[in-house]
């Protein structure tokens, strides 16, 4: 579904439920603590819920010049976390170079990996690179049941992720006394919202221990009604029900700590967004803030007004949701 159609669908909820009406105020960023780079839409998987609509057919990849500019910005500013996502970040040919540079800055560097790609001989070397450079890995594993994972992400994905977790554990990831962090992302395999992150983490740890693997933290993320997940909501006639759930469980406390208030998202072509979801809806930062990484201005961007639409409810429903999991604990 093209972007204009997605926005049309998202606008079709009752007017009194519009996110902008619900929050009754403008929302502004407070800082830029996290620079999130979407280094490309190319991916070895084509997950059914993917808001990026990533897949092997996608060509969009972040160019070296954009990465160089990002490197300069994080070097010159007090941005504590560099969060690298995609697609499959490993499919960007400049990732290895970028990691070798950015990990020398003594900042938190995260790569969001599907782990399946590390089984591919062409990308296997990232396993050693991540461990050597102390890269935090945030791996997608939507469930602890293999059938659910494979339904959403593709055949044999669960077994490949577990096999790679075993290798990461052997490298020191998620081991006691080790600084190497391996965190997992849970997102519902269906049109419901995630439950208590702590309860889910307990169950994940118990079930995955049966496979002989361990991890540090579970990040529970609400599926955003954007991209393929929005397609699925409409196809399965669950859109109205899902949106009503998000609206009914709106949590004003979560609004205070939504990720867009402390994150700046960079698209593959250097365009700036408030978050990865706005990126996929082609809604760049607005209200006068610079819209491209080559025009980066910390003072302007750290207090920018956030661009909102009705998909924003996915970050404020229940306990709130972000790329770092639940907002309220």
């Amino acid at each position: 579904m093209d972007v204009s159609k997605q926005l049309e669908v998202l606008s079709a909820i009752p007017k009194e439920n519009y996110f902008s009406c619900k929050i009754e105020q403008k929302l502004h960023a407070q800082s830029i603590d996290i620079l999130q780079l979407n280094v490309g839409k190319k991916c070895n998987l084509s997950c059914k819920h993917c808001h990026v609509e990533a897949g092997p057919h996608r060509k969009e990849l972040m160019a070296r010049e954009v990465l160089e500019k990002c490197l300069q910005i994080v070097t010159e500013n007090s941005i504590g976390t560099i969060d690298i996502t995609g697609g499959a970040p490993e499919m960007n040919p400049h990732l290895e170079w970028f990691l070798s540079q950015v990990t020398s800055l003594n900042k938190r560097v995260i790569v969001r990996s599907n782990l399946v790609i590390l089984n591919d001989p062409d990308y296997r070397h990232f396993l050693d690179l991540y461990a050597e450079k102390g890269v935090e890995i945030v791996a997608s594993l939507p469930d602890y049941h293999s059938d659910r994972v494979d339904r959403q992400r593709g055949p044999n994905v669960f077994s490949q992720v577990v096999a790679m977790m075993q290798k990461l554990n052997a490298k020191g990831y998620a081991q006691e006394q080790s600084k190497l962090q391996l965190n997992l992302v849970h997102n519902p395999v269906g049109t419901y919202v995630p439950g208590c992150q702590q309860s889910l983490e307990f169950e994940y740890k118990r079930r995955l221990a049966e496979h002989g693997v361990v991890f540090n933290q579970l990040f529970s993320i609400t599926n955003c009604p954007v991209g393929r997940f929005l397609d699925y909501l409409i196809r399965s006639e669950n859109f109205d029900d899902y949106m009503a759930t998000l609206v009914d469980t709106y949590n004003p406390n979560a609004l205070q700590s939504v990720m867009c208030r402390s994150t700046l998202s960079v698209g593959w072509d250097g365009v700036l967004f408030d978050c990865d979801f706005n990126q996929m809806l082609d809604m760049p930062v607005n209200h006068g803030a610079p819209t491209h990484i080559f025009d980066f201005d910390m003072d302007e961007l750290k207090k920018r007004e956030i661009v909102l639409h009705n998909h924003c409810y996915c970050c404020t429903a229940g306990a709130g949701s972000s790329c770092q999991g639940t907002l309220e604990h």
């Binding site: 469930d143 602890y144 049941h145 659910r148 849970h186 519902p188 269906g190 419901y192 919202v193 995630p194 439950g195 208590c196 309860s199 889910l200 169950e203 994940y204 759930t245």
Partner: peptide, 10 residues
Amino acid sequence: TNKCLSLGVT
């Protein structure tokens, strides 16, 4: 049913 789904119950 929704609560159970949200907590990973099959």
